[in-house]
Design a binder for these strands. Structure first.
Length: 921
RNA sequence: GGGCGCUUGGCGCAGCGGUUAGCGCGUCUCGUUUACACCGAGUAGGUCGGGGGUUCGAAUCCCUCAGCGCCCACCA
């Protein structure tokens, strides 16, 4: 690194190294490698999506895991790809077609429309991939997959056929969640319940044959009255006991003949007598619960709505063709007009909304394909085993944080069959054909069809001209749930599968635990006979400063690419990780990214400082020349390595970043680098240095190089770009063995905690922590004295030091330097003048004589305050030690610490008392 | 109706049985000293949501209350 700029400039560095890594094929996984495997499959982003903060969090974590594993000697596969995202993509393209050509997809026709979608995909599909690269993601891009790739589609079909033949997939006319906007069925998971303000209408119906006898019914949906096929009460409800079996006259539609309006009064346990009047109108075609009641009582549903949620002619001439909400108002009006309306009260209930289209879904009776989930027991128990502190089983899956296991388990025990067909065009076509009827017209594609008239296979029937393929496509998740193995070449037994399946970690958001994670686990067991991953890390959800979800409409979602341009990718990664505790939502604040940038700059400049000291990389450290600060620093590095290793084991990345931050900034830069200047200054500027000083200088630089080369490696998973730049710039790459990446830091060995031999060789015993801590205590307090004496930090000051014991010359030099002292006179017998600020530490007393400037009153006040604090602490400590139970039950080391602390406070007390006496206080 | 999470200095968070409760931002005061003003030195600011309990010892464990937020659930 010849001339280092003063500030780190990320842009060029990021582009340069990312290209370098790609050129060197650093991210390419070799399935034939003998190294232990480490693998992750990416949660495939929507192919037409744009990178948002959620992706940043998610993929940064995956990248950290992958990079750390690589350095740890693993053969790493991080498998990337994208998802075709059925509804989302189709809606997007439909919108575009409507805007640009004023046409609907039906105007274009299926084939032509799909061409447009593919075109859209070609144009926009690469954007998110490029954005992931900007983040630094070390995916094996040679293996990029798309859920609509031909091979992948083949897997999806094979799985469908397989499950069909096992009898787990069936077709049936059922109640489904129907989206009237996108005109397709949805799974339960695609529906969000949201509170809606509306009304509860009470209306009365007359009992047939009993003029003047009325029943009052409460409903939120009067427009569905024409679809009512019964009135239900609870069997034990005494109010209506005598009426069960009789009929009532349904008020709507009014134009029907009387006998067509008669519907029975039935009894069913589902009815809650306490709700409303205890009488329920049963609309089997438009309510899930009513449908089931209908089934139990063999009621024939009356479907009074069209697919787009307008009413049809069965709703009667007044309501037909009205939108459901208009019809609701109209129906209540009609009831009022015919004096059937008893009352209307405001009411709030929860209504299911289509997650994509944001409109209320309509429960609708329709012919759909359903899946009975496979391998449920295995999928459930492999995670459940980990609950409640049970010891980890070798063949079990861990959720991080664990609480999600409970959520998972609850869902797994209440599984409903999965509606997998969608009335869309963009997606995997259902591999089912129906035999055309004799006339060649479309077959009656319903569940009553004879088996011989249904062909389910990966390949179309031989006489395909006599068959018609099912028009529907599969739910997007029906392809994503195969992701971990379908991306690895399944159903062939590929080398990749053998080496990398099951994958090691999955990193994803808890919002898709049911959509994706649970289903992948079941698919893994069903088709691979094994779990798809060993660990699942659930990230938090990124929110804005006020805790709101990121959303386009709120405009509170920052563009990660802008942040990268402004602060650098490393800064974005570091800032995000530092503020994202395991499993907790993250309130995003740009300040965090700024912090990341500042940190990168600090790292940059610390290296720059080392570089300015000149000389080659110093490999050899001579134990006999190590100063107390050197040893302290090495011990701190060891501790940092240990802490980070633990943090990684627990997936606590925010702890890892905080540890690194503190280690590098506070311990290395603020203390060690500053202290090392005491050594370096002796030999700076060509001042006829003696040989010893030169050796000490070299040794100090060797320690710096040692620390920096370790620090860069520890930082690399978090800050890939800047660490690679510095790794090469500092020359540390040269010391490493040549590898596939041309000495890139990617494959530099991950630092390990020091061995005991190492510690002994360099004399690293923990007593140096105490020595240096005491020294720094002295410096800190000394800096405080400046304040007491009103001497600014830049001004040189004369200190006098009364050492408590032996002290190394080096330590004196450091103290002097860090105090910015003009002189530091050692005088064991010094008697400070009245009012001279002094402090006491374990190393001795430090005085700041202020000739002529002594402010006795100020010093008296300072001492008084000090005394109060000390006395309070001593009081607390003594009370504690005086407690016999404490002495008896507390562990010895705790006891020792308390005693030690008390002794220290007492020594301080004595010192303060002396000072006060000297001041005549 | 069930389940889960959160509540610690002005703000955002760590800490989850044992040092004088930490960190970042912000505040205030100084400051161009051998890297860094994207910086340095220092300062103020907290009885850890309320109450009760367990313990020699609780921010940390238990109970309870309150507030906020999520998820699940066929009360029309």
């Amino acid at each position: 690194m010849s001339e280092i700029p003063k500030a780190y400039e990320p842009k060029a560095v990021e582009e340069k190294w990312y290209q370098f890594w790609l050129d060197q094929k650093c991210f390419v996984a070799n399935p034939l490698s003998t190294r232990p495997a480490y693998s992750i499959v990416i949660p495939p982003p929507n192919v037409t999506g744009m990178l948002h903060m959620g992706h940043v969090l998610n993929n940064t974590i995956q990248d950290i895991l992958a990079r750390r594993a690589r350095m740890d000697g693993k053969e790493v596969l991080w498998l990337p790809g994208t998802d075709h995202a059925g509804i989302a993509t189709q809606v997007m393209v439909e919108k575009q077609v409507r805007k640009e050509e004023k046409k609907t997809r039906h105007d274009l026709g299926r084939e032509e429309f799909l061409k447009r979608v593919w075109k859209w995909k070609e144009k926009h599909g690469d954007i998110i991939i490029q954005q992931l690269k900007k983040l630094g993601s070390s995916c094996d891009w040679t293996r990029e997959r798309f859920t609509m790739d031909p091979e992948y589609s083949r897997c999806v079909q094979k799985v469908f056929v397989d499950l069909y033949k096992k009898g787990l997939i069936y077709r049936g006319k059922r109640m489904v969640n129907w989206c009237p906007a996108t005109l397709t069925a949805l799974s339960d998971e695609e529906v969000d319940m949201e509170p809606q303000k509306g009304s509860l209408w009470y209306f009365k119906v007359e009992v047939a044959g009993m003029p003047g006898t009325f029943l009052t019914i409460a409903t939120t949906r009067p427009e569905t009255i024409p679809g009512d096929t019964a009135i239900a009460v609870h069997p034990d409800d005494p109010r209506y006991a005598g009426l069960i079996g009789k009929q009532v006259i349904r008020p709507l539609p009014p134009e029907l003949q009387l006998e067509k309006k008669l519907i029975p009064i039935i009894a069913d346990d589902h009815i809650d007598p306490k709700f409303g009047t205890g009488v329920l109108k049963v609309t089997p075609a438009h309510d899930k619960a009513d449908f089931e009641i209908g089934q139990r009582h063999k009621l024939v549903p009356i479907d009074i709505m069209n697919a787009n949620a307008t009413m049809n002619e069965l709703a009667g001439e007044d309501l037909a063709w009205l939108d459901r909400f208009e019809a609701r108002a109209k129906a209540s009006e009609m009831l009022r007009t015919m004096s059937a309306l008893v009352k209307e009260e405001p009411y709030e209930n929860k209504v299911g909304f289509s997650q994509r289209a944001k409109v209320p879904i309509e429960p609708r009776l329709s012919e759909q394909w359903f899946l009975k989930y496979p391998a449920v027991d295995q999928a459930r128990t492999c995670v459940a085993q980990e609950q409640d502190g049970n010891p980890p089983q070798p063949d079990s899956m861990r959720f991080h944080p664990q609480r999600w296991a409970k959520v998972y388990d609850h869902w797994m025990t209440h599984l409903q069959d999965w509606c997998i067909s969608r009335q869309l065009w963009w997606g995997h076509r259902i591999p089912v054909w129906y035999r055309k009827s004799a006339g060649g017209s479309p077959a009656p594609a319903n569940s009553q069809a004879r088996p011989a008239d249904i062909w389910c296979d990966v390949n179309p029937p031989a006489d395909v001209e006599n068959w018609e393929q099912d028009p529907d496509v599969l739910d997007t998740w029906f392809s994503s749930w195969l992701w971990p193995f379908a991306t690895m070449g399944w159903p062939e037994q590929t080398d990749t599968l053998k080496k990398f399946y099951p994958t090691t970690d999955l990193v994803t958001g808890p919002d898709i635990i049911f959509f994706w994670v649970a289903r992948m686990i079941m698919a893994g067991y069903e088709f691979m006979g094994e779990m798809p991953f060993h660990n699942v890390y659930f990230t938090g959800i990124i929110r804005d400063k006020q805790g709101r979800k990121m959303s386009k409409t709120l405009g509170n979602s920052p563009d990660p690419l802008e942040l990268i341009a402004k602060y650098g990718a490393d800064a974005l990664r570091f800032g995000t990780m530092r503020s994202a505790p395991l499993g907790q939502d993250v309130l995003f604040d740009e300040k965090d990214v700024e912090l990341g940038r500042n940190f990168c700059n600090k790292l940059w400049n610390a290296c720059r400082f080392r570089q300015m000291q000149g000389g080659e990389v110093q490999g050899e450290i001579r134990p006999q020349l190590l100063t107390s600060d050197d040893k302290w620093m090495l011990l701190k590095l060891d501790q940092a390595i240990r802490d980070i290793t633990t943090a990684f084991e627990q997936y606590k990345f925010n702890e890892a970043t905080s540890t690194l931050y503190r280690f590098f900034w506070s311990e290395f830069c603020d203390w060690y680098v500053e202290a090392s200047k005491a050594v370096l200054s002796k030999t700076a500027g060509g001042t006829s240095p003696d040989e010893t000083s030169q050796m000490q200088r070299a040794n100090s630089l060797a320690v710096s190089d040692f620390i920096l080369s370790h620090a860069l490696r520890l930082f690399h998973p978090f800050l890939p770009f800047i660490t690679e730049e510095l790794w090469h710039g500092m020359g540390y790459a040269q010391d490493m063995p040549e590898d596939q990446g041309g000495r890139t830091i990617l494959f530099a060995p991950w630092p390990k905690p020091f061995e005991n031999d190492f510690k002994e060789h360099y004399g690293l015993d923990d007593s140096f922590l105490d020595i240096v801590n005491a020294k720094y205590d002295l410096v800190t307090q000394g800096r405080n004295l400046r304040r007491a004496g009103n001497i600014s930090p830049g001004k040189k000051a004369k200190f006098i030091f009364k050492p408590a014991g032996d002290i190394a010359p080096h330590d004196i030099d450091v103290i002097k330097l860090l105090l910015n002292a003009e002189s530091l006179e050692l005088d064991p017998n010094y008697q400070p003048a009245k009012g001279t600020p002094t402090v006491r530490t374990n190393l001795g007393e430090l005085c700041l004589p202020l000739d002529g400037l002594v402010d006795v009153e100020a010093e008296k006040a300072r001492l008084k305050k000090e005394l109060e604090k000390i006395e309070s602490e001593i009081g607390k400590a003594e009370q504690k030690l005086a407690n016999p139970s404490f002495a008896q039950k507390a562990p010895p080391h705790v006891l020792e610490e308390h005693k030690k602390r008390l002794a220290e406070w007492k020594a301080k007390l004595e010192h303060v008392m002396q000072q006060m006496a000297a001041n005549g206080q």
